[in-house]
Simulated scan of single mutants.
Amino acid sequence: MIPVPRYSCVIEDCTQESKKGIPMTILEIGNTPPDFTLPKDGGGAITLSALRGGPVVLYFYPKDDTSGCTQEAIEFSGLKTEFEKLGAKVIGMSPDPVKKHDKFIAKHDLKIALVADEDKKIVDAYGLWVEKSMYGRKYMGVERTTILIGADGKIAKIWNKVKVPGHAAEVLQETKALIA
């Protein structure tokens, strides 16, 4: 068995430095998002650049098995067949480890791929490891964001600070429009 790298990240068109001191891409339509290779649920790894040739829905979420993250994963899973008909891959990314992803998938019968960015280097490179606040307490966390990447590897649409209900259906509509 070939060992899978824990992570790797190739940053193109960098214009800022992240909080962790690594180059960070400004996420804008038309830009190439940072490439990565990350371990995925069930074993193996996913490399973003290897998915070129078809649309990719890359969604970032804070944590497995919390209410909003569970609802989002279930909604994307429910539409997986529709995304596949369009040649699109759906990938969820959080800082949770692969073992936690595996349990999350089994518990909720999820059908989508989940990648683990345990050291948060990729979410940071995307500028999505941000300061948050809840009940007056400040902490660092993942900003719920979805990026639709075209077959050419360029960002076609970005949803920041996603509100979960109905979001997966909206992303599906934009994916249909992208390939039309």
Rank of each mutant, 00 (worst) to 15 (best):
A125H: 02
R144G: 08
L110F: 07
Y126T: 01
K63R: 15
A106M: 15
A125F: 02
K111F: 04
A88F: 13
L114W: 10
G150I: 02
G127L: 05
R144I: 12
I122Q: 12
V57Y: 08
D96R: 08
V57L: 10
T146V: 11
L86Q: 01
D102S: 13
H167C: 13
D102N: 13
K163W: 02
W159E: 05
Q71D: 09
S94D: 05
K121F: 12
D117G: 06
E72V: 14
I149H: 02
L79N: 00
W159T: 10
F104H: 05
V130P: 02
W159D: 11
A125N: 03
K111Q: 14
A168H: 04
I155H: 09
K121G: 10
V162G: 08
I155A: 04
H108N: 15
I147V: 15
S133K: 15
K161S: 11
A88L: 10
H101E: 01
V142Y: 10
D64M: 01
Y139Q: 03
P55A: 11
G153Q: 01
A113Q: 11
L172M: 04
C69Y: 09
K99I: 13
T146C: 10
K120V: 13
I149M: 07
A73E: 04
V57W: 04
K157Q: 08
G68K: 09
D109M: 15
T145S: 00
K176A: 11
I112G: 10
M93P: 00
R52W: 03
I112Q: 01
V115H: 06
G150F: 04
Y126E: 04
A116S: 15
D117A: 10
V56K: 08
L128N: 03
D109C: 15
S133T: 12
Y135G: 06
G87S: 04
A106V: 14
I112D: 00
G136L: 04
D119G: 11
A151G: 07
M134S: 09
K161I: 03
A116C: 08
